[in-house]
C-alpha cells in the first residue's frame, strides 16, 4: 500500500525542477545574505570576517545616514503610492467610459509600463536636463519660466521629480488593475443607484469605490512594495544627491555594500528593508482586508 498514488508522484516529479531552481535562486540568497549580515565582512580586508551576531543591526540604528534614508524613503514611497493610486483610479474611471479613441488610449496606456526602467530613468534625466531638457524648453517657450533651471539640483523637489518619473512608469499597470476591477461591477448596481436617486459622485462613493477595494488593496500593496525598494532611478538620475536630498534606503544599501564594500552592514540593512516591506504589506492587507 502506497500513501501517494500515481498522480501525486508524477505531480511531484513535474514540480521538482521548478522547486530546485527556486531553492537555488531564491532560498539560498535569502539564507546566505542573512548569514552575511551576522558577520563583519569588509572586502578591503577579505580574510578576517568574524561572527558578530546582531551587532551589524545595532550599528545601523546608530547611523545618522540610516535615519536620513528612512525619512527620504518614507516621503518618496508615500508620494509614489498615493499619486499612483489616485491617478490609476482616475485613469481607470476615464477609460471605463465608452468614447471615440478609448481603445487607442487604452493601448497607449501600456507604453510607459513596457518601457524598461533604465530607459525610463534616462528619458526623464534628459527631460529634466538643465541645458537641453524638454521641461525647461517647454516651460520657457510657454512663458511659465524665465530661464532654464537645474531641476534635479534643487534639493526641495529632487525627490518629487524622481517620484514623477517612477509614477509615470508604474501608474499604467495600477490603472489596468483598476479597470479590470471596475469592469466586474454589475451594471444593474448603477441602474439601481440611479433610480434610488444617487448622483454621479454618490454612485462613485457607494457603488464604484466599495467594489474597487480588492483591486485597490492589490495596488497599494504592490506599489508600496516596489516604491520602497526603488533603486535604478536614483542610480541614473541623482546618485543620492544633491547633498542627501535623494539619499534613500536602497541607495544607502548600495553605497554601503558596493562603494564602502561593507557587506555585513549592507546585508543587515537589506534585511531591515525587506522586513519593513513585508510588515507594511501585511498591515495594508490586514487593515483593508478587514473592511471588505
Amino acid at each position: 500500500m502506497t500513501r501517494f498514488g500515481y498522480d501525486e508522484r508524477s505531480a511531484a516529479l513535474l514540480v521538482f525542477p521548478v522547486l530546485a531552481v527556486l531553492l537555488v535562486v531564491a532560498a539560498f540568497p535569502i539564507i546566505y545574505s542573512f548569514w552575511v549580515s551576522l558577520h563583519d565582512i569588509v572586502l578591503t580586508r577579505p580574510l578576517r570576517r568574524p561572527f558578530v551576531g546582531f551587532d551589524n543591526y545595532l550599528r545601523i540604528f546608530d547611523d545618522a545616514r540610516f535615519w536620513t534614508a528612512v525619512a527620504r524613503t518614507t516621503v518618496y514611497t508615500l508620494v509614489c503610492v498615493a499619486v499612483t493610486t489616485f491617478l490609476a483610479v482616475l485613469v481607470a474611471l476615464l477609460l471605463n467610459e465608452v468614447f471615440p479613441g478609448q481603445r487607442l488610449l487604452s493601448a497607449l496606456l501600456l507604453v510607459p509600463w513596457a518601457t524598461p526602467s533604465v530607459v525610463n530613468g534616462l528619458m526623464w534625466k534628459w527631460i529634466y536636463d538643465p541645458t537641453y531638457g524638454l521641461l525647461n524648453g517647454l516651460l520657457v517657450q510657454v512663458g511659465l519660466l524665465e530661464r532654464y533651471r537645474v531641476w534635479l539640483g534643487d534639493p526641495d523637489i529632487t525627490l518629487l521629480l524622481i517620484a514623477n518619473a517612477a509614477i509615470w512608469k508604474q501608474m499604467p499597470l495600477a490603472a489596468l488593475l483598476m479597470i479590470v476591477t471596475m469592469k466586474a461591477i454589475p451594471e444593474d448596481l448603477y441602474r439601481a443607484a440611479r433610480v434610488d436617486g444617487a448622483n454621479i459622485w454618490q454612485r462613485f462613493v457607494h457603488v464604484t469605490l466599495p467594489a474597487l477595494r480588492p483591486g485597490l488593496m492589490l495596488v497599494l500593496v504592490y506599489e508600496t512594495m516596489i516604491s520602497i525598494r526603488h533603486f535604478d532611478l536614483f542610480l541614473i538620475m541623482t546618485q543620492g544627491g544633491p547633498g542627501d536630498a535623494s539619499f534613500t534606503l536602497s541607495w544607502l544599501i548600495y553605497v554601503e555594500t558596493f562603494r564602502s564594500l561593507r557587506f555585513g552592514t549592507g546585508a543587515a540593512m537589506s534585511y531591515v528593508l525587506a522586513i519593513t516591506t513585508f510588515a507594511l504589506s501585511w498591515a495594508v492587507i490586514r487593515f483593508l482586508g478587514k473592511r471588505i
Partner: peptide, 13 residues
C-alpha cells in the same frame, strides 16, 4: 419610480 431587478442589485457592502 422604484425598480426591482432580476439580479437583485443590492449594494454588497
Amino acid at each position: 419610480v422604484a425598480m426591482v431587478f432580476q439580479s437583485y442589485a443590492l449594494y454588497p457592502n
